Simulated assay, not measured.
Amino acid sequence: LNVAYRYFPKQSVHMAIVDPGVGSERQGVILKTPSSLFVAPDNGILSYVINELSYTEGPLIHHSKSLERVTFKRGIEAVTITEPRFWRYPVSPTFHGRDIFAPVAAGLSLGISPYEFGEKITSLYVFPTPRPSFDAQGNLVGHILYIDHFGNLITDIKSTDLPEGNVIIEAAGQHIQGISRYYEEGQRLIAIPGSSGYLEISLRDGSACDFLGVEIGDEVEVIPTI
């Protein structure tokens, strides 16, 4: 979601539903960012969007691995979805995506103000998201965020954050010399700026995940060389 929404026109409405707490007391919310509107349950599903917008101000959550309620930064606003006149009836306790979130998203797309749907709030539940950092030797240490169905390893290291000059990429004890521009440029393991704007590790004609035996969350290190 955090990668995909950037390719839509400004003020697009995005409805995101992964909602194991449907029917419970968890809130539905509208998140308003400088470029987009999001309709979702308040259960951490928007964590990457919120944390990315606060990237330059440091982590929203410190020393925590669990869901926590955090206060917004950098012009983010949110509204609870509490105004029932916009909902579809009867409301199913197991299908808020159809009966509450979809009608609200439709209303937003027609130009109805987010503040018509409920009360403004200043915080949402957010999971901590991993971020790259520099170690004592000045190496950039990131993490595997996602493994696609080809076995490519997508990291949290932005292509724009890669140091200038020659580098070695280390993952699971394997060293990759330099950054490739495209897949056919390498012979075996390669590091390449992916289409999402993040550093990826791939294996020519194979799965980098299977070859390295790594998992989501494992570290990837970028080591500058002379």
Rank of each mutant, 00 (worst) to 15 (best):
T122C: 03
Q187T: 15
V126K: 01
E221A: 09
I144Y: 04
Q174L: 06
L199Q: 12
L153E: 02
A208N: 05
Q137N: 15
S133N: 10
G186V: 04
V126Y: 04
S123H: 00
G165E: 08
L203F: 10
K120D: 05
A208T: 04
P130S: 01
G178P: 01
G178W: 00
H149P: 01
G151H: 05
L203S: 04
E164R: 14
S133K: 10
D148C: 06
V126E: 07
A136S: 15
D210P: 03
T129K: 12
D205R: 09
A208F: 01
L212H: 05
G217Y: 05
A136Y: 14
I179P: 03
F134E: 13
G151N: 01
H143P: 08
A191K: 03
Y182Q: 08
N166V: 07
D161H: 15
H175K: 14
L212G: 00
N152Y: 12
D210R: 14
I176V: 06
T160A: 15
F211T: 03
V220I: 15
S123T: 06
P193K: 02
S180Y: 04
Y198I: 09
N152G: 00
G194P: 03
G151V: 02
A136Q: 15
G178I: 03
P163I: 04
I157C: 05
D135F: 08
G178S: 08
S133A: 13
G194D: 06
N139Y: 13
I147K: 08
S180R: 13
K158H: 15
D148Q: 07
T122D: 14
L145R: 14
T129D: 00
G138R: 12
H175C: 09
